Amino acid sequence: MQNTILVVDDEEEIRNLLEIYLSNEGYKVIKASNGKEAIEIIDNEDIQLVVLDVMMPKMNGMEVCKKIREKLNIPIIMLSAKSEDMDKIQGLMTGADDYISKPFNPLEFVVRVKALLRRAYYFNSKPENTRDNIITIDSLKIDIVNHIVTVDDKEIQLTSREFDILYLLANNRGQVFSTEDIFSKVWKEKYYQSNNTVMVHMSRIREKIEKYMNGNKLIKTVWGVGYKIEK
């Protein structure tokens, strides 16, 4: 099946550039110039991934990302001319899976698109669920096959990155993973200094899950070392 990618950017040059590179890889590309137009397209088209500029008229990228996350769990890559850590953190906190600062290398961009689509396909194409594919930790259940996380049967909406981090820790209970370990295993990229990506995702996972666990702390921080889930 041909994947359809929605490119949302108020700069026509950027939209056309990304369309060329994505089309060359066999993807169908739909373009939008603002946030409101993007929401209308998502409501009426089958979209597998969204490329979303942060600064746009009518509705900015952060708002669009939140709207998408209310309905769908598809991968979202945010683009921004801003490179400061807080801007990146804000983008990830709204539910984006990846963040790329402008100007960017189009070939690197395509690699990141492919990685996110592979991960989404992997979790959505597995066979029916069996007990062996469910990790249970107190009231938390992680359905590995169907990519579903529940607490007391309440489904928790996690992005693909958040799910990967949770699965890594839950599948290796008792083992401490450093920030560098988590980044290299989940993002499949070399970790670089001053990278707050893992910290932001960990904060989001905790926020989403632990408020339903009656005060129990699922993910433990081992100060100066990393993160773990107790056995």
Rank of each mutant, 00 (worst) to 15 (best):
S80Y: 04
Y122W: 02
E108G: 06
M199S: 15
N171L: 06
E19Q: 12
E210V: 13
V50E: 08
V145L: 15
Y167K: 08
N34F: 07
T94Y: 01
S184V: 12
E13K: 13
N44A: 09
E189Q: 08
A32Y: 00
K31H: 04
R206M: 10
N214A: 12
L168Q: 00
T94D: 00
I47W: 10
V7W: 01
L18K: 05
G226L: 04
I5R: 11
E162C: 01
A81T: 11
S194A: 13
V7H: 03
R112N: 10
E63D: 15
E210R: 11
D143H: 13
E37G: 06
E40D: 13
N44E: 09
A96S: 06
Y99L: 02
E11I: 11
R161K: 11
T4Y: 08
K66H: 09
E189G: 02
I39G: 08
L92T: 00
V50M: 09
G61K: 02
I156W: 04
N44P: 05
D9V: 06
I144A: 00
E108A: 10
S203R: 12
Q48L: 10
Q157M: 13
M93W: 02
R206T: 07
I14P: 04
N146M: 09
N3P: 12
L140G: 02
L116M: 08
F123V: 03
V186Q: 02
M62D: 11
E45Q: 11
R112K: 13
K31V: 05
L218K: 05
V113M: 10
N146E: 10
R118Y: 05
Y121F: 08
P106G: 04
I134T: 00
K67A: 15
K208M: 09
V225L: 13
G215S: 07
V149E: 02
D9I: 03
G215I: 06
V111L: 13
I41S: 09
W223V: 15
M55G: 06
I156Y: 03
N216P: 09
V111R: 12
W187N: 03
Y227R: 09
M78F: 02
L116P: 03
L168E: 01
L49R: 03
R131D: 15
Q48A: 13
I142M: 02
I182T: 08
L6C: 12
S203V: 05
R15L: 11
S125A: 06
R131S: 15
M56A: 05
E180N: 14
I142L: 03
Q48P: 08
K126L: 12
Y192L: 14
I47L: 12
